[in-house]
Each structure stands twice: as structure tokens, then as C-alpha cells.
């Protein structure tokens, strides 16, 4: 496989790679989690603002702004997640402001995790995570449909076995 020299284009978009997207159902899944984390303090500040001092409306406003920002950010973040299976390695990219691209060779995979929390199961999505011998390999693909997650898992392990190497 040859890699033509990349032009001045986007460094996170290597030529000749078609990206697979994750399920849009990841957006509500993430929004619910963030909503809980920000919503509870929001309720508390509203209560305190009513009961104790009106100054706390400032904190409430800040939380509302944060919530609105997250509401805009999360869908974009989810759309930015992409993965691509190449012949010998898997590419995963993510992030808008802080972007990341990880290249994991199949022969380096030690094990593959498929996880789904209660919310994920309800929304019918799952997360696939690849582990190498390195702790710093941060290769996870959230928001896959269970079928796709299973297919990816089997495919990755099959390819990993075919290209197995020691450490």
C-alpha cells in the first residue's frame, strides 16, 4: 500500500481513506449524560437563588449558557468521530477543537472490548475499544450499532490473529 505525499489539505484527512461514521443516536446518549451532570446543579442553583439570594441567578445563567454550548457542541463532536479499516491498520479520528488521529495496527491489538451501559442499550448503541500493550493507545469507537460493533469486533480479532506479532 503506498501513501502519496499529503498535500497542504487537512492533516486529519489522509487521502484515499473513506471514513465510517458512528450512529447519530450517540448524540442523545451523550446529551442525557451531560444533561444530568449540568441539570442537577442547575436545579440546585435555581432553588438556592429563589430561597437564599438572587445573586445566585448569575451561576444559573452561567450553567444555562454552558448547557446551550454543550447542546451545540455534542452533535458536532459526534459527527466528527470517524473510523476507517485499512488493510493493515485501523484509523480512528475524533474531536473538532482538539483533534486526534490514532493508527492502530491489527497485529498490535491485545484485546477488544465491546461495552454498552444501560442508556446505550436503550438507545441500541455500543462502544468498541481496542487495547494494545501501550496504555497510551486511546482507541475507542463509541456509538456503534450492536450489529456493527459485533462485526467490527469479529473482524478486528480475525485480522489481529492473522497478523499477530509479539510485543
Amino acid at each position: 500500500m503506498t501513501h502519496p505525499a499529503p498535500g497542504p489539505a487537512d492533516p486529519f484527512d489522509p487521502p484515499g481513506v473513506t471514513w465510517d461514521r458512528v450512529s447519530p443516536r450517540l448524540i442523545p446518549a451523550r446529551l442525557v449524560v451531560v444533561g444530568i451532570w449540568l441539570g442537577l446543579p442547575l436545579v440546585v442553583t435555581v432553588l438556592l437563588a429563589v430561597l437564599v439570594t438572587p445573586w445566585l441567578w448569575i451561576a444559573t445563567a452561567a450553567l444555562v449558557v454552558l448547557l446551550a454550548w454543550v447542546g451545540v457542541l455534542v452533535p458536532r463532536q459526534v459527527r466528527a468521530i470517524g473510523y476507517a479499516e485499512r488493510d493493515d491498520d485501523l484509523l480512528i479520528r475524533s474531536g473538532i477543537l482538539f483533534r486526534e488521529l490514532v493508527v492502530v495496527p491489527y497485529g498490535r491489538m491485545q484485546f477488544v472490548d465491546v461495552t454498552a451501559g444501560p442508556l446505550d442499550r436503550r438507545l441500541n448503541i455500543a462502544k468498541v475499544q481496542l487495547h494494545t500493550a501501550s496504555a497510551s493507545t486511546d482507541a475507542e469507537i463509541p456509538g456503534l450499532t450492536p450489529d456493527e460493533a459485533e462485526r467490527l469486533r469479529d473482524r478486528l480479532t480475525a485480522r489481529g490473529e492473522a497478523r499477530l506479532a509479539g510485543l
Binding site: 492533516p11 486529519f12 477543537l97 482538539f98 483533534r99 486526534e100 488521529l101 490514532v102 493508527v103 492502530v104 495496527p105 498490535r108 494494545t132 500493550a133 501501550s134 497510551s136 493507545t137 486511546d138 482507541a139 506479532a165 510485543l167
Partner: peptide, 15 residues
């Protein structure tokens, strides 16, 4: 031959 995986990162300032 000891490379595990590779990564590329870019923050807003770097971009």
C-alpha cells in the same frame, strides 16, 4: 518493530 500504535494530535492554536 516495537511501535504499538501511532497518534496525531492538534489543538486550536496548533491548527
Amino acid at each position: 518493530e516495537r511501535t504499538q500504535s501511532l497518534g496525531l494530535e492538534q489543538g486550536p492554536w496548533q491548527r
